[in-house]
Nucleic acid binder design. Structure first.
Length: 608
DNA sequence: ATAGGGTTAG
């Protein structure tokens, strides 16, 4: 007679413990393969628990194979703790048991635990195989831990796994996510076989490292050399690259491919389209795509909130936020960045501060440096610079975060000609060893505007002494399938550049006529090195900077602002004027994506 | 036999 004592106590949903004792002999699982099928088809916890208890009763849990299936069922339900509990009960976990559990921890946002398991595994009788390495490489990718990733890569080579397709793809992704694109490309180049996943990983590696031109070039290569069509993963990545570059036409062409392939029903693809159209200046299209989504989650909503904010549609942005709340969708930290951005760019300072203050109280989200950065920016734009400064001072932040905060104060102080704060913020940044070149140039230019030439020369010689060099900035716009690039201090590189300069002069005059430009702050061509010739032309909610025949939008912004804002009309004028030189039927809303790379450099010469 | 790689908002 077989006796089983089984008690399952459910203390909280899914948190259960059981004890058992049995005197049955172990039954081979092959006698009952239907469990496997049942487990694979179970998508709810109740049925898995029920199968679990059956397996337990029948003594199958002594069988590694059966237990592995059960572990995987729990992993699929993201019940990593339950899977782990089962795992620890196993007498002889094999490679599959270890790998499954590691993957489970990575999927539930705890990749560190998979490293710990990997170490333990190396001391056990189970030996890691290609599956295990692919899983561990992914853990490195998630953590952007290239150190560990390189070590794994070396082990992979030593074990002779380096020709495995999946492993190579995981390595490409890992190197890409840790900002080592060239290493990613080296792997991609030596692969004997590639599939759509490997191509997508490489495209994404480029796009995520500010090399979207290379991403699109690779995509073209894929289209020309492969026989099968791109899937939704690849298309989402391509749309993303189009958005970063403001390549509206290419974005539209890709959109057509998406619709023909039926991928527009995919929410991730739809979200990238929303974002791409917003970045290309076509917020109307963003809205159209968004409104076709059945149940948009927090990400597409945030995309729309940000898009509206960048287009100066602050009210609409806030309405979208309200709509989202009404639909029971919980905002996250990024959503609030968008909301604060909207308030900042539409002059809704008190509303913005209210949101900042209620973030934690009403939504349980702790404001962090990126939110304070928005607040500093918002106060700065409203010319409440002393408050902005006081706020920046009170925030405790790591050097990287502090740099963001003080960088914001620096630029907003420059815009308002607050020399004292420019110097304060600039010195803070130099102390932190962040944005050093930009800080020097900004300080120098602000001194020059104030006519303090002694200080200008002091800073310039300090820069020379310390060998600080400022990369030239550039911007570009796509108009009617042609890309116009504007370099700082370089008129020649832009087609019809002289006409642009001429029209910008006119713009300057018009703006002055309307009193938009502060007397002491406009169009001072600072006597500095060629590469650093940058001067703020106007006080805008979106800043339009003017150098020697260049248009530089410092941080990558879209210019299109509501008519009832003073600034906007000036911007609108600017684009009307620029449009004249480009084509008569130039559509203002179709332009407007300016891109700068994170590190201040750019590769737009590759663009052609 | 069971386990592994790619996509979205700042």
């Amino acid at each position: 007679m077989r006796r089983i004592f089984l008690s399952i106590s459910i203390s909280s949903p899914g948190l259960y413990t059981y004890t058992f004792r049995q005197n049955s002999h172990s039954i081979s699982c092959s006698q009952s393969p239907n469990f496997v099928q049942q487990l694979q088809q179970s998508h709810d916890l109740e049925s898995v628990i029920s199968i679990h208890s059956n397996l337990l009763k029948l003594g199958f849990l002594r069988d590694t194979f059966a237990t592995n299936h059960l572990i995987n069922a729990y992993v699929r339900l993201r019940r990593t703790d339950d899977a782990h509990w089962l795992f620890e009960e196993m007498s002889e976990p094999n490679v599959v048991s270890w790998t499954s559990l590691m993957a489970g921890y990575i999927d539930t946002g705890k990749p560190q635990i998979s490293f710990w398991l990997f170490e333990r595994m190396l001391g056990s009788s189970a030996k890691p195989n290609v599956f295990t390495f692919a899983t561990m490489v992914k853990a490195c990718s998630v953590l952007a831990d290239v150190e560990t990733g390189r070590k794994l890569h070396a082990q992979i080579e030593m074990l002779g796994f380096q020709s495995n397709l999946v492993l190579c793809t995981a390595l490409i992704d890992m190197y890409g996510k840790s900002n080592n694109v060239d290493e990613a490309r080296r792997i991609f180049d030596v692969m004997a076989y590639r599939n759509i996943v490997s191509w997508t990983s490489m495209i994404v590696a480029y796009a995520q490292n500010a090399q979207s031109n290379d991403a699109l070039r690779l995509f073209r290569e894929f289209i020309q050399s492969m026989y099968y069509p791109p899937n939704h993963f690849m298309l989402a990545s391509v749309i993303n690259a189009c958005g970063s570059l403001g390549r509206l036409v290419m974005g539209k062409v890709t959109h057509a491919v998406i619709i023909r392939g039926g991928h527009h029903v995919n929410d991730v693809v739809a979200t990238t389209l929303v974002d791409m159209y917003a970045k290309c200046g076509c917020f109307g299209y963003s809205d159209k795509v968004f409104r076709h989504m059945q149940n948009p989650c927090v990400i597409p909503y945030t995309s729309m909130i940000v898009g509206a904010a960048k287009h100066g549609l602050g009210k609409l942005s806030l309405n979208l936020f309200e709509e989202m709340l009404e639909r029971g969708i919980r905002p996250n930290d990024v959503t609030f960045v968008g909301v604060l951005h909207a308030c900042s760019h539409s002059g809704l300072v008190s509303v913005g501060l209210e949101h900042l203050n209620s973030m934690y109280r009403s939504h349980g989200i702790m404001p962090d440096v990126k939110h304070y950065m928005c607040a500093v920016d918002m106060l700065g734009r409203a010319d409440r610079l002393d408050e902005a400064y006081q706020l920046a001072k009170t925030i405790q932040a790591e050097p990287d975060d502090g740099a963001i905060l003080w960088g914001t104060l620096l630029s907003t102080s420059r815009t308002h000609g607050r020399l004292d704060l420019v110097v304060e913020a600039g010195q803070k940044l130099i102390e932190l060893n962040k944005q050093v070149a930009a800080s020097y140039v900004t300080m120098s230019n602000t001194y020059a505007v104030a006519g303090k030439w002694e200080n200008v020369h002091k800073i310039r010689s300090e820069m020379k002494q310390k060998n600080v060099y400022k990369e030239p900035g550039c911007s570009w716009i796509e108009v009617k399938e042609t890309i116009y690039v504007f370099y700082a201090g370089d008129v020649v590189s832009c087609i019809r550049g002289n006409e642009v300069v001429h029209l910008l002069r006119e713009l300057e005059v018009k703006m002055k006529e309307r009193g938009y430009v502060q007397g002491s702050n406009d169009l001072v061509f600072v006597d500095v090195e060629e590469e650093a010739k940058e001067t703020i032309l106007s006080l805008h909610s979106e800043r339009l900077a003017l150098g020697f025949g260049l248009i530089t939008i410092p941080k990558g912004v879209t210019i299109r602002i509501m008519k009832n804002l003073r600034m906007c009309r000036a911007c609108h004028e600017a684009f009307k004027l620029i449009s004249e030189i480009v084509k008569r039927d130039f559509v203002v809303r179709d332009v407007n994506r300016f891109h700068h790379f994170k590190d201040g450099s750019c590769n737009c010469k590759d663009y052609w």
